[in-house]
Design a binder for these strands. Structure first.
Lengths: 285, 285
DNA sequence: CGCATAGTTGAGGAGACTCAATGGGCGTGG
DNA sequence: CCACGCCCATTGAGTCTCCTCAACTATGCG
């Protein structure tokens, strides 16, 4: 997460508010060297690598298409090079849940390693480009493989923690806080990638947000509208502008319905709507 | 999960219904060899290992005590040798959420690898014994370390998937189904370990179950009581007997509140309490 | 220029939460 | 050995959040 590096930042990633234009210097590569791969991963290596041995192919994928589906054989894992993705899991009844929205620099497909086939599906929300990393490489005995493997272990560990965090959010916070946290985490990611943390475009539908957060799409819509009403946000369809970070951050740590062992259960919680929103802060005018 | 092996099954694990008695042949070891470690992990290796090089110390821990706390330095990961544990995560406000209930054969502490300190806390629900695996060993260059590392990667991948599954359960299913799934997964685990899948003792409180499932403790209690009423379960405090596996399994796949893109939203859902329980099946008399 | 998809908003209801009181088990101490 | 107290579990009553259904609007695409 923090290991994301500012690597040719403007390359792609968010073409944010100028969709579909692609200037000539933004042309994607066909393949990356080990060094390039490592740089994008955020691996700092003091070893002198034999950069020419391995070439990692880039995979381009159109918006709306799947990179892989659940149960597909897993022979590669991927590093997001550009674009916005969506990872989902489906139960046996075909009910889908969105698990994450991978962006540039993130590794995807790690769920496929255990059994040699993917547990999740991965879909492109925008035209995207991924670097394919053969499992073979991950398992290799050479120095590059070993360095990468160590990194991979670290990433998996981190992903585990992230899953747990979002599990907490999903199960313990009221909608307002869920949405606030979601927007803040997006904002943080954008910032890490060198884009505006203040205004950005949601690449996913309300329904997808809802699925991710474990609430209905209407509730997501209402919550975002509510945040606009109290002046914390401005929205225009999928474009979001954060007007008041502090309020949003405060919101995210407000009481909860379901919390286990709430240390001191705030008596203010009795006051209806106490956690519904931050103090309107003297609504603008 | 499926890789759990039947390794000296009766050793400890569940002393189930005869608490606090410990027969002489149940005495825990002080340390394990690589082979023993691998066996408990479920690693099958055709290589001839130098079993005597590494010794893995066992850590014994009393019920109610912590093995590690969030932010503790992570120098070891652990393999559960016996007993029942609880892993929790706490946000900055001190609100805890239960993440898992590790049992024999499960690896814990993998969340600590990324940053060298644990993200979660681990507590013993019963007297337990863990095998400590130094990170040093995990990172080693010898053949034993490499085999173990591969296994560890696989385990992490699997844990990632499991997290995602339970995230789905938490966010998408009604309480009844949550509890049903929970009990079934416990039952399955017990069976894997060679114990009764039909009747067992819950080692955790209603509150802990609630935290794990993202519902209140009262709701857990009510749901379990409800399952008893319709004859699917028998309970006596923390001891559970499953009377009707099919009903429980059916229950777990019933409609849901929050489902994202429910393929065909069953119209029966309009019927109040449609998912409240399975058909009472002509309640016993 | 409509049709389809996505988003908004309202009304009403159901599930699950909170608060509160009761009862059972178990350990401790008189 | 019983009594007391503590913790956990159960159950009830009332309420609130969030869901569902539904109608309407905006946006984008052919």
């Amino acid at each position: 997460m923090e290991t994301l590096i500012r690597f040719s930042t403007d390359e792609l990633g968010l073409e944010a508010f100028k969709p579909k234009s692609r200037s000539i210097d933004n042309l994607p590569r066909i393949s990356s060297s080990t060094e390039q791969l490592f740089a994008l991963c955020g691996i700092e290596s003091r070893q002198n690598l034999n950069s020419s041995i391995h070439k990692f192919l880039h995979v381009r994928i159109k918006a709306g298409r799947h990179i892989y589906l659940s149960n597909d054989k897993c022979e590669m894992i991927y590093l997001v090079y550009s674009g916005f993705l969506k990872s989902t899991w489906a139960d046996t009844n075909g009910n889908e849940k969105v698990l994450s929205f991978p962006m540039k620099g993130e590794m995807v497909g790690l769920d496929g390693i255990a059994h040699g086939k993917f547990a999740n599906s991965l879909k492109a929300l925008t035209d995207s480009e991924l670097i394919a990393i053969p499992l073979q490489f991950c398992k290799g005995q050479n120095i590059e493989s070993e360095i990468f493997r160590n990194h991979m272990i670290s990433v998996m560990s981190q992903q585990l923690v992230n899953e747990q965090k979002s599990s907490f959010i999903i199960s313990s916070l009221p909608v307002d806080a869920k949405v606030a946290k979601f927007l803040l985490s997006l904002s943080f990611k954008f910032k890490s990638l060198g884009y505006s943390e203040k205004s950005f475009l949601l690449r996913m539908s309300r329904e997808e947000i809802g699925s991710y957060l474990g609430v209905s799409l209407e509730t997501v819509s209402r919550t975002i509208s509510g945040l606009c009403t109290i002046g914390v946000l401005k929205k225009n369809n999928r474009s979001i502008e954060i007007m008041n970070f502090d309020a949003l951050k405060k919101l995210k740590r407000l009481p909860m319905g379901v919390t286990y062992k709430a240390t001191v259960r705030s008596k203010k919680a009795r006051n209806p709507k106490a956690h519904r929103a931050v103090e309107p802060e003297k609504p603008p005018t």
